[in-house]
Each structure stands twice: as structure tokens, then as C-alpha cells.
């Protein structure tokens, strides 16, 4: 394991409910962030926040919320609203990154309406999700995103989606990207995910960062406020990204 260079910043990650909201191997994302920090001599620290545990809005640079089974997502939604909402709003306000993936993305909005039931959300972004009776939206997906800041520009995110919820953005709320191949937020809007400043949500589920190392680096640089990161040998990363794009047909 690489030494942390003296004076280097540490990426401090808060993993929300890592034992419940992890259905599609969300830990791959944390592993990606950890290694890419270590290999550059940057520090990396991850802290888990589970049911009933409070979070310190100032103690983390990046908050991660993954996807879970219906039952677990319900449990976590209620707990988020009860014990963590205020802190997460404060963290977002002061500029910390929040990344919600799959079920975690749905919980960034106001509500998730299922048949005869409503799961509350954090209301960090203006969106709501409605469970569709139609077929689940499943498959390889690729979107085009345009991010400001380090390593930004117009880039492709490739991944896999599997969701029954259709997510509708309120007027003025921006998507994370435009669908090149796949379903996206509703299967018909051509929009995928959400991005408001440092709050990002996407249906590209589970190990999204391994398929898009450039996005992992964008998160690291943005969370730490760095202009550029040292380059790494990304032969394998580039091949995996190209392969995921091919799987989606892009």
C-alpha cells in the first residue's frame, strides 16, 4: 500500500448504510476511490453510517448512498429522514459531494410513490419517483455528460441499470446526462440522473466507477478541491470503459 505523502489531503468518505444499500456491489465504487487515492499518495478514509447513527456534515468530503432491496430501501429512507436529513442538507450546502446511485438516487428526491405507499426522500433535489407497473428498465446504458471542473468536458458514462421507478425532474432541475443507449430516468425522456452542483444521482448502478475511472477521478478532484490529479497507468481502466461502452452499443 502506498504511503500517504506528507501534506497530502485525505479524501474522507461517508458510506451511508453500506450493509443494506449495497445490492449491486456498490462497494466496487468505494474500492475504486480508495485505490486511486492510495496510488497517488492521497489519503483515504471511509466511515460507515448505519441505521440510527447520526452524521457530521463537516467531517466528510463525499457522501455515498447505494441501492438496496425494496424492504431495506424503505428502512433506510425512514432512517435518513429521521436521523440524517439535516446533516446531509448542511453538508450539501457547504459544498460536500453527495452521490446517490440507483435506490440511493431515488432517495435524493422528495418521494418514491409505490402502489398504496409512499417512501419519503431527502428533498436535496427537485424530483420524484413513481413505481411503474410496466416492465423494469433493465440493461446496459450509456449517457453523455458534461461536467465542469477538473477532467470535465463532454464525456461518456457507461453502466448497467435495473429499476422499476420512473424518475421525473422538476422544471429547472438538470439531469446528469443525456441517454445515448438505454432507458434513463423514465425510459422515454432521454434524460438520465440528476445533478445540482455537488449533488449527483444516477441509475447507473453498483460498480459505476470501475467502468468509468475518469468519473472516479472527477469525484476525487472535486471533493478535494484539486485542479488536477497525478496521472495513473489506466490501461486496464480504459479497456474496461471501452468494453462497457461496447456492451451498451456506443
Amino acid at each position: 500500500m502506498a504511503e500517504v505523502a506528507a501534506g497530502s489531503p485525505t479524501l474522507r468518505v461517508c458510506a451511508l448504510y453500506p450493509d443494506l444499500m449495497n445490492i449491486y456491489a456498490d462497494r466496487g465504487n468505494l474500492l475504486m476511490l480508495a485505490r486511486r487515492c492510495e496510488w497517488r499518495g492521497l489519503g483515504f478514509a471511509v466511515m460507515a453510517a448505519g441505521l440510527g447513527e447520526g452524521v457530521d456534515p463537516d467531517a466528510h468530503d463525499l457522501f455515498y448512498l447505494g441501492g438496496g432491496q425494496d424492504r431495506d430501501q424503505r428502512l433506510c429512507a425512514l432512517d435518513l429522514v429521521r436521523t440524517k436529513s439535516e446533516a446531509l442538507h448542511a453538508a450539501a450546502d457547504r459544498g460536500a459531494l453527495l452521490l446517490g446511485v440507483c435506490g440511493g438516487y431515488q432517495l435524493l428526491g422528495h418521494r418514491y410513490a409505490l402502489a398504496g405507499e409512499e417512501i419519503p426522500g431527502l428533498g436535496l433535489v427537485e424530483l420524484e419517483t413513481i413505481r411503474s407497473d410496466g416492465p423494469r428498465l433493465i440493461g446496459n446504458v450509456a449517457i453523455e455528460v458534461e461536467l465542469d471542473g477538473p477532467d470535465g468536458g463532454r464525456r461518456v458514462l457507461a453502466g448497467f441499470e435495473n429499476h422499476a421507478g420512473h424518475t421525473h425532474l422538476a422544471a429547472g432541475e438538470q439531469p446528469l446526462g443525456r441517454v445515448l443507449k438505454g432507458h434513463g430516468n423514465t425510459g422515454s425522456s432521454g434524460l438520465e440522473g440528476v445533478r445540482r452542483r455537488n449533488v449527483v444521482g444516477t441509475y447507473l448502478h453498483g460498480p459505476l466507477l470501475p467502468k468509468n475511472a475518469w468519473f472516479a477521478d472527477w469525484l476525487i478532484a472535486t471533493a478535494l478541491g484539486l485542479d488536477a490529479l497525478d496521472p495513473l497507468d489506466d490501461t486496464f481502466e480504459d479497456a474496461a470503459h471501452a468494453e462497457a461502452r461496447r456492451a451498451a452499443g456506443v
Binding site: F236, A240, A242
Partner: peptide
């Protein structure tokens, strides 16, 4: 068909490239 991502997984598991 997904050889590259498997190799990436192994790299991140700690196997030298």
C-alpha cells in the same frame, strides 16, 4: 465477453497488472 472488467476487478483486488 467482459474480460477487461474482470481484469480490472483483479487489479483492484491486489493482483499486480
Amino acid at each position: 465477453t467482459r474480460a477487461a472488467e474482470l481484469a480490472l476487478r483483479l487489479k483492484y483486488a491486489g493482483i499486480a497488472p
